[in-house]
Every structure is written in structure tokens, then in C-alpha cells.
């Protein structure tokens, strides 16, 4: 169980679906959240860890991300949706606790930051970490393209959703809702 904390531990390969160990699921989500910032920053590590264990499929990641966009609260609650998809209410509650604990560190960070926040080592590390999160995030998004039935219509929806989001005038739930209706029209 504790090997999830070993940085070099590759997840063991699962053969098909397996029973979920709730403690392991909790620790994996907690670790991914501790090593990332922002609501979706834990996506790359979870995408790397959960499918090989047989805990979640690529499709479930896409579904959870979509549901997280249309429900209230931070979009980071997509992990709660993923937890429900893979382990019902227990998974959702474990995910909720796992994503709630790391932000509590703000109470420590706020005191320390005033003293060392401008130190070159802290600044450099945070910048490098942020760039790596962005780079690996893009990789995961491309992975979602490969894992879905992607065609010309899908490409049009990608372009349209980016364009609408860039205007900052169309709320995200509206974009998702419009995409759902377009999907229902195109693929039914």
C-alpha cells in the first residue's frame, strides 16, 4: 500500500478489472493532489496511475472531466465524479477527502511564504514544477483524443469549444451543453 509514496514505483500492471483497494485509491488521489496545483493538476498523475491498476478506464476519465465541468463548485471536483464512477459513493467520499487535505497546507504556507517565498530556490522550483504540470497535462489531453472515437465532427467541436471559451462570454456549462446537443444530433 505504501509503495504509492515511492517516486520510482511504477504501478503494477493489472490483467483486466480488479477489486479496488479503497486505501490505495485514497493514497493515489492524495499523492497526485499533493504533487500538483490547481483543480486539474492531478489529472496527469492519476491518468498514469489508475488505468494500469485496472481501477479506471480512459473513458471514465473523459466522463468525469465532462461531469466536473457542468456541476457546481471548482472543476477540480471532477475527481469526485471519477471516484464515484470507479467505486460508487465510497470512492466519491474518499476522493473528496483526498482533494480537501492538501489545500489545508495553506495555513502553513501563508506563514512561511512571507519569509522564503521570494527565495530563488522556491521561485525556480515552482516555475519548473508549473511548466512540467502544463506539459504533462497536454500529453494526457492528447491521450484522451486517442482513447475516444475521434472524427472530423469531433475536431469541429474541439475548435468551437476553444473558440467559445476564448471569448470569455460563454459559460463553460453552456459550451458543454451545446456540445452534448451537437453530439446527440451528429452521432445518434
Amino acid at each position: 500500500m505504501w509503495d504509492v509514496w515511492l517516486p520510482l514505483a511504477e504501478p503494477e500492471q493489472a490483467h483486466g478489472w480488479r477489486m479496488i483497494d479503497p486505501v490505495r485509491l485514497f493514497l493515489l488521489i492524495l499523492r497526485a493532489t499533493l504533487f500538483s496545483t490547481g483543480g486539474s493538476g492531478n489529472l496527469p498523475m492519476l491518468y498514469h496511475d489508475l488505468p494500469p491498476l485496472g481501477y479506471a478506464s480512459e473513458q471514465q476519465f473523459a466522463e468525469a472531466l465532462a461531469i466536473g465541468q457542468v456541476t457546481p463548485g471548482p472543476t477540480g471536483l471532477w475527481v469526485v465524479s471519477l471516484g464515484y464512477l470507479v467505486d460508487d459513493v465510497r470512492g466519491a467520499l474518499l476522493a473528496t477527502v483526498a482533494i480537501t487535505l492538501p489545500p489545508l497546507l495553506i495555513l502553513v504556507v501563508e506563514r512561511v511564504y512571507r519569509r522564503i517565498g521570494t527565495h530563488w530556490a522556491v521561485q525556480g522550483f515552482l516555475r519548473g514544477l508549473g511548466l512540467a504540470v502544463a506539459g504533462s497535462f497536454a500529453v494526457v489531453i492528447v491521450g484522451l483524443v486517442q482513447g475516444s472515437a475521434f472524427d472530423f465532427g469531433s475536431l469541429l467541436i474541439v475548435v468551437a469549444s476553444v473558440g467559445l471559451a476564448l471569448t470569455r462570454r460563454v459559460p463553460v456549462p453552456i459550451i458543454i451543453g451545446a456540445a452534448a446537443m451537437l453530439g446527440g444530433f451528429l452521432y445518434r
Partner: peptide, 28 residues
């Protein structure tokens, strides 16, 4: 109908994810 809607939602999520990736990297 839900499967069809999902086939529309997933590309939109991918598009928003691409934008999110850019928004993460851009200020840095």
C-alpha cells in the same frame, strides 16, 4: 442518446483541456 451526447461532450472537454494547458503555461 446519452452515448451520442457523450461523443459530443468529450471533444469539448478536450478543447477546454487544451485551453487549460495553455493557461497553466502561459503566465510562466
Amino acid at each position: 442518446v446519452i452515448q451520442a451526447a457523450l461523443r459530443g461532450i468529450i471533444p469539448a472537454t478536450i478543447g477546454l483541456g487544451i485551453l487549460m494547458s495553455w493557461q497553466l503555461a502561459h503566465p510562466l
